[in-house]
Amino acid sequence: MEHFDQTDARILNELQRDAGQSLESLGDTIGLSRNACWRRIRAMEHAGVITGRVALVDPKAVDLGLMVFMQVRTHSHDPDWQAKFNKATRTIPGILSVYRMTGDLDYLIRARVRDMAGYDALYQQLIHLVPIADVAASFVMEEIKDSTALPL
């Protein structure tokens, strides 16, 4: 995007808070007309600043109350293994995020499952799809802060 200003940042902050609000409401909050807001949003979408609009779902309401972080270590770092791992993690619905890491850990996976049996099923599915040297899991006991909003 060629020009990103404070008004764009204010629009993004509002959309991160509630992307479902009307353009009229957004314009009132920002101090712009409905059309001016719409033009700025479209420009940010075309520039790739806004990559999508989603509904945030309460995991407990859909029986996915257990969050797990899986620390993955591998013996292989070749491109074929990485492509297979990437494809496998993208196809498993319970896996929400996958990060390639520095240090002792190769990958960090964040997943949501119903319970311990759900975790075991996810784990079995993953190791069936791609060979992994070691997996350690940590289960979230309390979510203190979980946000999707970027600080702008």
Rank of each mutant, 00 (worst) to 15 (best):
51 T>F: 13
51 T>M: 12
52 G>W: 15
55 A>W: 09
56 L>F: 15
57 V>K: 14
58 D>V: 02
58 D>E: 09
58 D>W: 01
63 D>Q: 11
64 L>G: 02
64 L>P: 07
70 M>T: 06
72 V>Y: 13
74 T>S: 15
74 T>L: 07
74 T>V: 10
75 H>W: 05
80 D>W: 11
82 Q>D: 04
82 Q>I: 11
84 K>P: 01
85 F>C: 05
85 F>K: 02
85 F>E: 00
86 N>T: 11
86 N>G: 02
87 K>W: 04
88 A>K: 07
88 A>Q: 01
88 A>G: 05
89 T>G: 03
89 T>A: 08
92 I>Y: 01
92 I>F: 04
92 I>M: 05
93 P>L: 12
94 G>H: 05
95 I>P: 00
95 I>C: 01
96 L>K: 13
97 S>D: 15
98 V>S: 08
98 V>Y: 08
102 T>Y: 15
102 T>W: 11
105 L>A: 08
105 L>F: 11
105 L>W: 06
106 D>P: 14
107 Y>E: 07
108 L>A: 14
110 R>A: 13
112 R>D: 11
114 R>V: 09
114 R>L: 03
114 R>H: 13
116 M>F: 03
116 M>L: 06
117 A>E: 11
117 A>D: 11
118 G>P: 05
118 G>Y: 02
119 Y>Q: 05
120 D>P: 00
123 Y>R: 11
125 Q>P: 00
